[in-house]
């Protein structure tokens, strides 16, 4: 059995890393969603983090910790700068503006000398280890648990429920929204930095429109009732294509079918606590 486990780990460790990174991305978008912001900019922030961390390693020879820190810092700064004018938008208009921002970032990656154009950056050393990902996720989960009962968490909740009312209650909605946006960008950036250091390679097309939608899909699919749902949803969407590999040419079609079925039968996402409670009641009755 230990042999089997070794083979399993050698085969699927990248998948496990990917699941961890996707969970981080899900948390990053959950943070913005929990403050009522629909952002499609998280893939771009992930990209900025990935390129920054990779360049810090390749060009500056910085230790991994510092490279990751830079990979979180720069997206945070960019989010701060674009967040100030952008966050007065709401709903799909904000989604559109962040989508536009993402496209601009992608084109900049394509055209800068230092980012290697469409060739991207290759030869990024393998630095990410499982404990890095686990440790960061533990810290994040702890933070989210604390956040829920904190003043900030309640302010987010109030803004999400009704922004006008929140403002009337004296909540500085602009600062809180900016905080959620910037923190989301930092988490996405760190996730990008981690990803870059176990896939040897980054290129602009990994951070365009489709990945942006994928991140959102994972979160909504899992259920946005709590921070657990997005993590579960994105993990499932990362694993599903591997599980469906035996379907060969039809695996993506079946992937789509599963997405539809889950949405129809679990309209609040996979991690639906109300549903769990109902099932428990039914079970005990």
């Amino acid at each position: 059995m230990t042999d089997d486990l070794q083979v399993f780990w050698a085969t699927y460790n990248t998948l496990v890393y990917t699941v961890g990174v996707h969970a981080m991305l899900a948390l990053s978008i959950y943070l913005t969603l929990s403050c009522g912001l629909l952002s499609l900019g998280n893939a771009a922030f992930m990209g900025i983090g990935a390129y920054t961390a990779a360049l810090a390693t390749l060009r500056l020879g910085l230790p991994f910790g510092e490279a990751l820190a830079l990979g979180g810092l720069l997206p945070g700064l960019v989010a701060l700068v674009i967040g100030i004018p952008t966050l007065r938008l709401s709903g799909v208009y904000l989604a559109m503006a962040t989508l536009g921002f993402g496209e601009v970032v992608r084109v900049v990656f394509l055209n800068l000398e230092i980012t290697g154009g469409s060739m991207g950056l290759n030869g990024i050393p393998m630095k990410t280890q499982l404990w890095h990902i686990v440790a960061i996720l533990v810290v994040l989960v702890y933070g989210f648990v604390r956040l829920r009962r904190s003043k900030i968490g309640r302010a987010f909740e109030a803004i999400k429920e009704d922004e006008t009312a929140a403002k009337a209650m004296g909540i500085n909605t602009t600062s809180y929204k900016l905080l959620a946006f910037v923190l989301g960008a930092i988490i996405a950036g760190v996730a990008g930095g981690l990803n870059a250091h176990f896939t040897f390679f980054v290129s602009p097309r990994e951070y365009g429109f489709d990945p942006a939608v994928d991140i959102l899909t994972g979160a909504i699919f899992g259920g946005t009732g709590s921070f657990v749902g997005p993590m579960v949803g994105s993990a499932i969407l990362a694993i599903l294509p591997e599980l469906l590999r035996f379907l060969k040419a039809f695996r993506l079609a079946v992937n789509g079918l599963i997405l539809i079925l889950v949405v129809i039968y679990l309209p609040n996402g996979i991690w639906d606590r109300k549903l769990f409670a109902r099932l428990r009641r039914k079970g005990s009755a």
Binding site: F221, G256, L259, I264, N268
Partner: peptide, 16 residues
């Protein structure tokens, strides 16, 4: 349902 759920469902339909 979450108001973005229908959009997610259409992603499934598009993929299929």
């Amino acid at each position: 349902a979450h108001h973005l759920m229908p959009m997610i469902a259409t992603i499934g339909a598009a993929t299929l």
